[in-house]
Structure formats: structure tokens, C-alpha cells
Simulated assay, not measured.
Amino acid sequence: MSVQRWGDQDPQRQPAWAPAPQAVGQVGMRAGHADRDRTIDVLKAAFAEGRLSAQEYEQRHEAAAAAQTYGQLATLVADLPSGPMPAPLQAAQPVPATFLVPPPMPQARPTSALAVVSLVCSLTGFLMLPVVPAVITGHLARQQIRERNLDGDWAAVLGLVLGYLGGAFWLLLFLLAVA
């Protein structure tokens, strides 16, 4: 008994899982390796859940590996759920949710320059006496960060803490020198 392959089938006799060709937009769009991998993941899940026989899984797996377009991949998983709970059927969706591009990553917020100045001044405050500018720019930076939705609050807080510690250090040295 020979196993029929996806491409070797009689065009008049298609498998039960292969829906009739439809005029759906973007079915001719080229598919990439990641798209094929997602399709194979859906097939693996369907096989593990008992929705596909071993022969059906093997045929569809080979067809997914050789598929060139979204339409070919969509045909392979059209009768299978793509998640834990299948969504109700909708009017011809151009691209199945399995193949949609993920949304873009959010852009990073700019860092407050005053926060960086506060941090630098406080770090050098133990060598010289720029602890006063460190504390002033730290407070200004925290206010600016709240008003303008900037990043760098950690630098402003660290600049304030080190600035106050540096001020206490210099004050203690001054009091010991006077005494």
C-alpha cells in the first residue's frame, strides 16, 4: 500500500480536509520559514489532541514544508483550531491570525539630561564639592520627568541620595576641622 503525497493527488479527488479554492485576498503572498513553523506547530497540536491521524499529519507536515504562499499554509490548517478555543467563523479573513505580523515594539522614552547631571555631580561630590548642584539638579530632574514623561528617574533619585550623603560627609569633615 503506497502513501499518497499532497502533490500526487488526483485533482478531482482532494482530501476531506482540503477546502475548495476560494477567492480570498493575500492568498498568493509568499510565506517565510517562521510562517511554515507556525503552521507545523498548529499541526503538531492537532495531532497531539487526536484531531489528525499519523498519515494525515505526515502529509500535511510535508505539504507545509514545501508551501510557498499563505494560501497553501492556510489550506493545511483551515479545518483545525489555531488555539485552545477556536473563534467562530468570520467572513473570509484575508490572513489567518496565525500568520499576522506582531505589533511593533513601543519606543523608548528619552532620558532626562538633568538626571544624568545630578548623578555625575553626586558621584564626583566626594572628591570635590559639587554636591549642592547634584541635589538641585536632582530635584529639577524629578520635576521635569513627571511633567514631560521622561525616563531617568532612577538616575535623579540616585543623584539625590548620593548628593545628600556627600553633603553630610563634607559637613562632618567641616565640623571636625572646626572642632
Score class of each variant (00 low, 15 high):
Asp10Thr: 15
Ala48Trp: 07
Leu89Phe: 13
Trp6Glu: 04
His139Gly: 10
Leu119Ala: 03
Ser53Lys: 07
Gln26His: 13
Val135Asp: 06
Tyr70Arg: 05
Arg51Phe: 07
Val132Gly: 10
Ala48Cys: 10
Ala65Cys: 14
Gly25Trp: 11
Ala54Met: 10
Leu123Val: 12
Pro103Ile: 14
Ala65Gln: 15
Glu58Pro: 02
Ala66Asp: 10
Cys121Thr: 02
Ala141Phe: 04
Leu100Ala: 10
Gln59Leu: 09
Val3Tyr: 11
Gln72Trp: 02
Ala92Met: 14
Leu114Glu: 06
Pro86Leu: 04
Ile136Tyr: 08
Ala67Met: 03
Ala23Gly: 09
Pro103Lys: 13
Leu76Glu: 02
Ser118Asn: 03
Pro96Ile: 02
Met29His: 00
Gln12His: 15
Gly83Thr: 09
Gln107Ser: 12
Gln72Ile: 01
Asp8Asn: 15
Ala108Tyr: 02
Leu80Gln: 05
Pro133Asp: 05
Ala34His: 14
Trp6Gly: 03
His61Leu: 12
Gln93Ser: 13
Tyr70Asp: 02
Ala115Arg: 06
Leu80Met: 11
Ala63Ile: 05
Met128Tyr: 09
Tyr70His: 05
Val120Ser: 01
Arg30Tyr: 00
Thr69Tyr: 00
Gln72Arg: 00
Val132Lys: 06
Leu127Asn: 14
Leu119Ser: 05
Ala141Val: 05
Arg30Thr: 00
Gly7Asp: 11
Val77Ser: 00
Ala67Arg: 00
Ala23Ile: 08
Arg13Met: 14
Ala74Lys: 03
Gly50Leu: 15
Gly83Phe: 09
Gln72Pro: 03
Thr75Gln: 07
Gln55Pro: 09
Asp37Trp: 11
Glu62Trp: 14
Arg109His: 02
Gln93Leu: 11
Gln12Met: 15
Gln55Gly: 08
Thr39Ala: 01
Pro84Gln: 11
Ser82Pro: 04
Ala23Val: 10
Leu89Glu: 13
Ala97Glu: 12
Ala23Arg: 14
Arg36Asn: 09
Ala20Ser: 07
Ala46Trp: 11
Ala115Val: 02
Ala20Gly: 10
Gln22Gly: 12
Ala66Val: 05
Pro15Tyr: 14
Arg60Asn: 00
Ala23His: 12
Gly50Lys: 15
Thr137Asp: 06
Gln4Ala: 13
Thr124Leu: 08
Pro133Lys: 01
Ala92Asp: 15
Thr124Gly: 13
Pro110Leu: 06
Gly32Tyr: 07
Leu73Phe: 03
Gly125Ala: 07
Val77Leu: 03
Arg5Gly: 13
Trp17Glu: 14
Gln26Phe: 12
Leu43Pro: 04
Ala64Ile: 00
Gln55Tyr: 09
Thr75Asn: 01
Gly83Met: 10
Ala54Phe: 10
Ser118Cys: 04
Pro110Phe: 07
Asp79Cys: 04
Gln72Ala: 02
Thr75Arg: 03
Ala31Gly: 03
Gly71Ser: 01
Ala65Ile: 13
His33Ala: 14
Val132Leu: 14
Pro133Arg: 01
Pro19Trp: 08
Met1Lys: 07
Arg38Tyr: 05
Thr98Ser: 03
Asp79Val: 05
Val101Trp: 12
Thr98Pro: 08
